Computed example of a mutant assay.
Amino acid sequence: MTDVMAKWAGKTVVVTGGLGFLGSHFTEELLAAGAEVVSLHRNDSFGRLQQLRRVPGAERLRPLRVDLLDENELRAAFRFCAPRVDAVFHCAALDGNSEFKVKNSARILDLNLRYTSNLLNCARDCGVGDVVLISSAEIYCTDSPAPITEEDDFRRTMRYSTNGYFLSKVFGEVLAELFRAQFEMNVFLVRPTNVYGPRDGFHGPVNRVIPSMLARIAAGEEIEIWGDGSQVRSFVYVTDMVRATLEMVAADRYRTFNIGSTESVAIVELARTLAEMLGEPERIHLRPDKPAGPSARRLDVGRMTEVISFVPRPLREGLAETVRWYQERQLATSGLAGRV
């Protein structure tokens, strides 16, 4: 364990969405670092609580079922968990693929803003030391091949959009900065690029791009890509994203920072790579009539690389780990695990 990560030992940390994709990994890493972790969750549809009960440090895990929309219930959870909460990692959010976001913009904006507002008010009243909001690289509006810095955000160009997810992240950050200024709260804004890896959801309309592609390839279905597939994105493996965030917050050098990799890939090439890894033929259907988003989104991760003690893994290595986990999971759920 690095000296920076050792700073979490003995701390009491609340993780919202603690059984979700990001939240479960934050919970596991914090437990490994010696923290007392209070995991707030609404449900456990993936059975992750039992998984977390088997990780090192699980005796310091306190899971609580809490509805973040109920501010009184949230305050009660904070009062119950410890005399003082040292940090909160706010991972809970409604997310999804492009089609899901288009069809559910009002719902996403409404829920995500209320989650964030309730969390900030509760953290303020309970005197929480550090509040960490997991935002998104989607807040950046620029369409440029140059790496995007933290200053290229809504403070430079504020625009209207019907994308409720984008708006929820922008206004969530605006609200956080106002809380930071008015109430002198120590708020960190984390802007990761596309996060992928084990424990991501692989079924339903809320899937992100990589799990959605894997599920379609494995089922022998076409991968539908909006646009011409040339749009370039960067990705970061989930445990690298979590560890980088924990080190950045512990170092307390920057309050707003990008998290990601310097590597990037065209979406159509990503689909081809995943098909190759699964040993399946390419079945790709391009939809140039659909909105594809910015042609390129690469983050400037200079602040991150200046602070963290490791190098994020290459995309192909991370994809191989994700494919391996996916195949093992599919084998286990098919009832074939353990058969000769």
Rank of each mutant, 00 (worst) to 15 (best):
A92D: 05
E269P: 03
R159K: 12
I259A: 11
G17K: 04
V14A: 11
I108T: 12
I134E: 03
R114I: 01
Y160A: 11
M158F: 14
T2D: 15
K103T: 14
L111K: 08
R339P: 07
S144M: 06
L167H: 07
L336H: 11
A181Q: 14
F310H: 09
S309E: 13
I308C: 06
L40W: 04
V13T: 14
Q327V: 15
E28K: 12
D152K: 02
R159Y: 10
G318L: 11
V301S: 03
R329L: 15
D252V: 10
T193R: 02
T12N: 04
P63R: 07
A6P: 12
R298F: 03
S295F: 06
G229E: 08
N194L: 06
E73P: 08
D130N: 08
A77M: 07
D300Y: 09
A271K: 00
T142V: 12
V55K: 06
P288G: 03
L331N: 10
T256K: 10
G260R: 14
H41I: 00
N163S: 10
E276R: 11
V37K: 05
E222N: 08
S264P: 08
V102L: 15
L74I: 06
E317Y: 07
R255L: 15
R329M: 14
D143I: 15
L30M: 02
L40V: 01
R243T: 12
R159Q: 13
D70G: 03
S135V: 02
V265I: 15
G17H: 03
V236M: 04
S136V: 12
S39C: 11
N163K: 06
V206D: 06
D240G: 08
V88Y: 04
F179A: 07
K169N: 08
R79T: 10
L49A: 02
A266M: 06
H203C: 05
L119Y: 01
V85Y: 00
W8D: 13
S309P: 06
G20L: 15
I139D: 08
L278M: 10
L315I: 14
E282C: 13
Q231D: 02
I217C: 01
I210Y: 05
N43A: 15
E306N: 11
A93S: 15
S135P: 01
H203E: 13
H90C: 05
V268C: 04
T27P: 09
T256M: 10
G47T: 02
E173N: 13
E222K: 07
E71W: 00
V131H: 03
E269T: 01
Q330M: 15
T12E: 01
V268N: 04
V88C: 01
